[in-house]
Amino acid sequence: MSVPALHGRTALVTGGARGLGQGMAQALARAGASVVVADVLDEEAAETARVLAKEGVTAGSVHLDVTDEAGWEAAVAATVEQLGGLDVLVNNAGVEVTALVTEIDPADLRRMLDVNVVGTALGMKHGLRAMRPGGAAGTGGSIVNVSSVAATIAFPGIAGYSATKSAVDRMTRIAAAEAGKLGYGVRVNCVYPGLVPTAMGMKLAVDCAGIGLFDSPQAAVEAVVAQTPSGRLGEVADMADAVVFLASDAARFVNGTGLAVDGGMGS
């Protein structure tokens, strides 16, 4: 029986400077992987890499705006150069802008589409190119995309965000089918995180109250908990451990699917 272990593996995590991405980078490192932290927040990404290095992990950081294709090419090349390969890609970078459907700002919607959808698509494009036979790494691997429970439920205030995270789910499954048919040796899956009290998660609660959907941010949080059979919000470690599982050989026959890590909220 396999256990989630990543000794000798190399990983690139987008949006890895803080929040869920930082937790995912830490969990991958603690499972034995060497990690490159990619983010637009250069100082925070470098600090996360320094903390990992102090724990005896080979770690580095790279600037990456996931909407920029040249940036992706450079980030993947830097990862292969720094770590000697690329076995795991976590497409975690994302943005959320809360709005009633009647108040959607096209610029905000385009921003979410650009980061959450285009950014994930470019990540899969360049991750698959590097991992497939003949690529810069060329030994196969695992791609884990971060979708959201928002892709599986109808929660008010997040129509645009839900749309983008639903797109991540569909792209994940198609990429897995293509990679399998073409013999890339790369599994592609996604996770559906529930609400986690990170800065981004709590901003959602504040914004939902701000547009009149709930009496207060606490009421918004309580509404999420009330819909969650596990009776609590998620924790960063809940999401990070799921990513480690999907990246590892313990999930060797898990492919083209989405793993709900939402306490049952989307059931």
Rank of each mutant, 00 (worst) to 15 (best):
A99K: 13
V101H: 09
T102H: 09
I104W: 08
D105L: 11
D108I: 04
L109Y: 15
R110M: 13
L113C: 11
V115S: 07
G119R: 05
G119V: 05
T120E: 13
A121I: 13
M124L: 11
H126V: 04
R129T: 08
A130Q: 00
M131V: 00
R132D: 01
P133A: 06
A136G: 12
T139P: 00
T139N: 13
G141H: 07
N145T: 03
N145Q: 03
V146Y: 00
V146R: 01
A150Q: 10
A150D: 09
A150F: 06
P156G: 06
P156W: 06
T164R: 04
K165D: 09
S166N: 12
A167Y: 10
T172G: 06
A176Y: 09
A176W: 08
K181G: 15
L182M: 08
G183E: 08
G185I: 01
G185C: 04
G185L: 04
C190E: 11
P193R: 11
L195P: 04
V196G: 02
P197R: 02
M200V: 10
G201V: 00
G201R: 00
M202K: 12
A205L: 13
A205R: 12
V206E: 15
V206I: 09
G212A: 06
G212M: 05
G212Q: 06
L213Q: 07
S216Y: 05
Q218V: 10
E222L: 03
V224E: 12
A226V: 02
Q227S: 14
T228C: 02
P229G: 01
D238S: 02
